[in-house]
Design a binder for these strands. Structure first.
Lengths: 169, 169
DNA sequence: ATTTTATGTCAGCCTTGTTGACATTCCAAG
DNA sequence: CTTGGAATGTCAACAAGGCTGACATAAAAT
């Protein structure tokens, strides 16, 4: 029984989608995600942080001055959960929370120099693995990779993801 | 500034790997994984289970009669952590634990009919999303998807993953 | 007979999710 | 202008599911 996703038959892609192939895809996703988070996890451990801190740092870095509410909708957690993480990051001097200028209820979030430094360390580790995987697989594979991932997102998430395209910090 | 992974330039792939592209890949991975687990998560919630239970069911289903130790190494958690999950699954009659025939210290794990039924429900939901993503992206994209994911795994994990190829249950 | 291995269990800790209650601020309707 | 709701963020308490450490038991290996 041949394996690998190359044995497309039929006009479109019929036999192509065997349960066995799908199962392999599911497991590949599971194991790859573990690898994907492994390097940052190690670094975070040294600092006493977890993945939640990494996610917050990542998205604050991407959109400087974002509000807590914005961050909530991107991260998909409750505000209370996010708040705990934010509080430690602020206490530790990695994130700065400024009261909103137009709406004083809002808090605009920024990375401090130290926060930006940690974010760079984390994302560089993650980029390095991604880069290695991309190199090993080649440009065409990368295009396919991104296409499948995008199709796998929830609809609302996909629009959020796409909205983050042209944005220079 | 053009986006998308198609603008490969240079002899190999040099400009291809911009930090911006890598960042997009990282975020795609993050959001796609959320979508990937969303459907099973909803089903599990109704039963009072979590992702940990899903993972156990999945791998017990894939390799009937696997031992606790085997499961530990695949899942990458401690035995105390796995045991908590396993205990509830056994109490609820979804998993059966039989004393090993050759080595009576070992426990061979099997899904009961009820366990297999829940596993089918969960994996069918997940397969359905995977199937939809595959259809939307096309066969070539799927090949690339799998290549990149495989390259992203840790080395030991990749061998485990590959060892699971030809295995009929 | 002793040691090692496989498994299970108890206790306790940490991260990170949850809900509920509350404070602050803004805005709009009276 | 005041007052009531809506939006935003904070604090407290709880649960799931990771983790470590210590210990028990049974069976295999030496």
């Amino acid at each position: 029984m041949a394996d690998g996703p190359g044995n497309s038959i039929g006009g479109e892609n019929l036999l192509f989608l065997t349960d066995e192939q799908l199962r392999k895809g599911i497991e590949a996703m599971f194991f790859a995600y573990r690898g994907f988070t492994a390097d940052p996890d190690r670094i975070l451990e040294d600092h006493g942080y977890g993945r939640a801190h990494h996610r917050a740092l990542h998205f604050i870095n991407r959109t400087h001055g974002t509000t807590v509410n914005n961050l909530l909708s991107v991260l998909g957690v409750t505000k209370q959960s996010l708040n705990r993480v934010l509080r430690t990051l602020i206490e530790d001097g990695l994130v700065e929370s400024r009261i909103g200028k137009t709406d004083r209820r809002e808090r605009n979030l920024y990375l401090t120099e130290a926060g930006a430094a940690l974010e760079r360390t984390l994302s560089e580790a993650q980029r390095e693995r991604m880069r290695a995987a991309y190199r090993a697989a080649g440009p065409q594979a990368v295009a396919g990779f991104r296409q499948v991932l995008e199709a796998m997102m929830d609809d609302e998430i996909r629009s959020q993801y796409n909205a983050m395209r042209e944005r220079r910090s």
